[in-house]
Design a binder for these strands. Structure first.
Lengths: 206, 206, 206, 206
DNA sequence: AGATAAGCGAGACGGTACGTCACGTCTTCAC
DNA sequence: GTGAAGACGTGACGTACCGTCTCGCTTATCT
């Protein structure tokens, strides 16, 4: 949730007339463009996402967008990176609890429409643009590293087997979430989700 | 692998001038269109896949394409469905062996360039087109059912726990493969693949 | 002056919705584009003449314009060629009378705003575009040939000297008209015009 | 021809880094801008003449140009006015000789590439910009006054008729030169040029 | 001597037009 | 009625300039 100040700042960026502030990037324009891009993505999906549409909505000139983002893909990635996901990997004491929490949190985050639509677009774009694909892959590897801590803890506790690779284990979990996102089936009944968590916990058992 | 007759038929479809064969669908045209679509997809990816390009390559009129495929998405799905994957779910005696074989076969199938490029495109398209998304989801559910047999066998053998849902277990495995396809990381070292198979096998253990 | 039928045809071209009439040029679109181009030229001059503006006014697509006119210049020339000037080179019996009539007719034709504005634009364009310059020069040479008849008649009558080149003589007269057009001084007092005609007549005297 | 000092000054204006010299116009900047403008005009014609290009070439800021020249047109006129034409109206004793010399000198001056390209641009610009048109017309009237002296001399000698208006006579000659410039036909064979001069001389005969 | 005021380069800004590409629809004509 | 062909209106692409703006600086002129 955004604070009041942030919202008014963003609104100002969109609603007041902007102009150059000298030979330097105008942060209000950047804000307006990113905000407009996100809104379009959320409202109409990747299909209605075009530089023209973003420029129109942000009341910005197309060259201003192209000046700072070399391609549609890069703008997309920037929009995605603004979607700050508070990555909680809470220590519940058991690996199954941790996994359930992570899965539940991620799916819930995507279900709040904004984030899900944006991320789906990024993945789709990566299937067209090799650079986006590399960026996405690199980003994911980084995310696995973050998420893998819970498996490391489990190994330290002796709950997970020695031969388990924490990052790969994390990847399997993320893969499941991706798959549900991409087939538009984020609304998972709790028992299914629990069973998945249990299975993943089982999979690393010593 | 295609037979010689099929190839010459396809070649004929592409190279000779075609015209109406009366008030009925001309199968040569359909063949030429699908073949051209597949080639474009494989050579240039989804980015260079356009109705216009397909029509050009197939020496077909655009209306001919629109007459038989209501949208780009549907043409894409048709191309995908032609990619007959010989779904082997061989009974190796152990669930881990079965899983490894399925994973290895799928990734190998996609690595043979043609199939992978096409399927990636289908998934990307599904992120834009809700109808494609539904079709894809339905197709996947069907595939899980096929693939789940090995888990059923494992349950029958007592190798897998009672609480395991064979289809969901299959989904987890497919998810992993999808994820690697979508991040262009199909070249998995054998030890990683073995570890993944072992983990998946572990996950269903009683 | 256009006939009523022509006007209603042109109006129809502009006002009714047009579409393709098969794999052939749609004359209504062509008409609408040329008409719109002329109107823009007359109303706002070369400065406001842009392909976008023409397309907008003609309710045509830009590609339709580019399909048939490779450049702004060519569209301009086409507009000019539609401005059919009834080239009267009346035989008044004296060369001075002929010259006066030709000069008066030409300036009057240009003063009727439409033709003058279009021709000024063509000349200006020719200063930028070498191809337009060539086309214009060729067109002018042709016009001199037409206009030179009166000098030939004068030579036959013994009114003009043998050493006179009829076409070059015609060029001098056209040059004067051009000059007045280009400096926006078409409103020439009759005595000045008479003096010019007298001078030109003098210039060819035996 | 420029003196050595002027050239080095101009070079300095272009090559050394310039900055403000206090609350006053920096003549080096003005020089650099005008020089750059002329060069661009000569090298690429009016088509490649843009404020942006001039600023780039002169290493000047756009606002510096706009501060001193309200429009592209005015900059163009300034460039033209720097093209000092040594207006020779030599007294050869006969009006035909005078006319030939003036015509030959003017065409030769324009043929030396620099002047011709610039003047063509001014005329073209005047077809778009009414202010430029007025300025050009005023300038031309002034030039006729200068050039008309030879006709006045001819009248004084009794070589030209009383009813001749020297300035208008001069205009006819300039018109011919303009016409050749604008249709890119400055390379006139000497016999044609002689005939033209003879005709113009004839035209004012008593 | 220090403040002030304007000129300077730089370059970002919101725009308009460029010329190209693909969209999905339409009509014609040969079979 | 099916097929190739290709024109149509639409709209996005990425680029070039437009004319305006604010910046940080430099330097002459005025307290």
């Amino acid at each position: 949730m955004k604070t009041t100040e942030e919202e008014s700042m963003a609104d100002k960026a969109l609603k007041t007339r902007r102009t150059s502030i000298g030979a330097q990037r105008n942060p209000q324009s950047q804000e307006a463009i990113l905000q407009a891009a996100e809104e379009i993505l959320v409202e109409g999906g990747l299909g209605s996402f075009s530089i023209e549409a973003v420029a129109r909505r942000a009341r910005a000139g197309k060259p201003t967008i192209y000046r700072w983002w070399p391609s549609k893909t890069m703008l997309l990635l920037d929009v995605y990176h603004r979607q700050k996901y508070v990555d909680i990997a809470p220590d519940t004491g058991t690996i199954e609890g941790d996994i359930f929490n992570v899965l539940y949190g991620l799916l819930e985050f995507w279900r709040t429409e904004r984030a899900g639509a944006v991320f789906r677009s990024v993945i789709a774009e990566a299937q067209t643009d090799p650079e986006a694909c590399r960026a996405l892959a690199a980003y994911m590897v980084d995310r696995y590293r973050q998420g893998s801590e819970m498996f490391q803890r489990a190994k330290d506790r002796g709950e997970a087997a020695d031969w388990i690779d924490p990052e790969q284990a994390m990847e399997l979990i993320a893969s499941f979430a991706w798959h549900r996102l991409l087939t538009d089936r984020l609304d998972i009944p709790e028992d299914e989700l629990r069973r998945a968590a249990r299975q993943f916990a089982n999979s690393v058992k010593a």
